[in-house]
């Protein structure tokens, strides 16, 4: 059994979901401070029709092509959200909710069609819904890892620029940072992270990989740099452990396990985190109470 767990394929797959976790943890911090957490959820759902349509066209599970299809579909979703919220009275969150549901519905509908077509059942397209890291082959792992490393690289070399862009866009613009370009780059890395993650984690739960590590990291640090590092580490741990556990059973979906691990890290952070974690808050309150009683006692003695 142990040899089954540690066969080379599982090892590779775990490595790739670890790198994916680093990338999604980092980009999640950007999304967190852009206050666009729902956006990542909308875009990951919006990727599904692209995956299925590409499969229907090329009739084979070529991951690179499916990723490109997913990317186009997610980008269309992003543009549609922008367009709806700019051109109508509908607010951005309502637009995101609509796009999320409509694209996902369309994706599931097309998936039914694809599954009925010849060879569709064996396509493994279903794995894009909840994620099936074990279904990945070595070339998939390679594509995923390379793209994730590109995302990480873009965030690391532009660290100072991302910080300025997230904290004060108007001031950044005054300094000559091209805000339109940064908006585009942000959407690009967000969509890239989502589409490379959907095979392993699935469209439904991919957003959790972006949101939960970033939120958890807030409980451990006061600096943006450390937030990026901690969030990436949490993403990496969730990715690695979740994939490891899901590889133990045949047909166990990867996404839910990764999310459960991420949620566990969140609960630990919420309770034990050194920045406004519940335990620290409780202890501080106790101390304040003690000092208060001490002060009253001193006053009474006087």
């Amino acid at each position: 059994m142990w040899s089954l767990l540690f066969n080379t394929n599982t090892g590779w797959v775990i490595m790739s979901t670890t790198i994916l976790g680093i990338a999604s943890g980092a980009i999640g911090c950007l999304a967190y401070w852009k206050r666009q957490n729902l956006m990542s959820d909308a875009l990951s759902h919006a990727a599904l029709p692209g995956v299925v349509i590409t499969f229907l066209i090329v009739q084979e599970k070529n991951l690179l092509l499916l990723i490109i299809g997913a990317g186009i579909s997610a980008f269309l979703g992003a543009m549609l959200i922008q367009w709806i919220s700019n051109a109508s009275r509908i607010s951005e969150d309502a637009a995101m909710g609509m796009v999320l549901a409509i694209f996902y519905g369309l994706g599931i509908m097309l998936l039914t069609v694809a599954n009925r077509s010849a060879g569709g059942n064996q396509s493994g397209l279903d794995s894009f819904i909840f994620g099936q890291a074990a279904a990945m082959v070595k070339s998939d792992v390679r594509i995923m890892s390379i793209l994730a490393i590109v995302v990480i690289f873009i965030i690391v070399i532009g660290f100072k620029e991302w910080k300025l862009y997230l904290f004060d866009r108007h001031f950044a613009n005054g300094l000559g940072l091209p805000i339109g370009f940064m908006n585009g780059l942000y959407t690009l890395v967000l969509v890239m992270t989502i589409v490379i993650g959907i095979q392993a984690v699935g469209v439904i739960l991919m957003a959790a990989m972006l949101i939960i590590p970033a939120v958890s990291s807030r409980y451990w640090t006061k600096s943006f740099r450390n937030m990026l590092i901690i969030s990436s580490s949490f993403g990496a741990i969730s990715g690695a452990v979740g994939t490891f556990i899901s590889s133990k059973g045949s047909g166990w979906p990867t996404g839910p396990f990764i999310v459960v691990i991420a949620a566990g890290i969140f609960i630990l952070s919420l309770t034990l985190g050194k920045e406004k974690g519940l335990l620290i808050k409780f202890l501080n309150k106790q101390q304040q109470k003690k000092q208060q009683t001490l002060r009253t006692e001193i006053r009474e003695v006087k």
Binding site: E161, L164, F167, L175, R218, S223, F224
Partner: peptide, 15 residues
């Protein structure tokens, strides 16, 4: 936003 006063002022020098 998680940063300190000095860091914000340093942003003025990014150009």
């Amino acid at each position: 936003f998680p940063t300190d006063a000095l860091d914000v002022v340093t942003m003025g020098l990014y150009g």
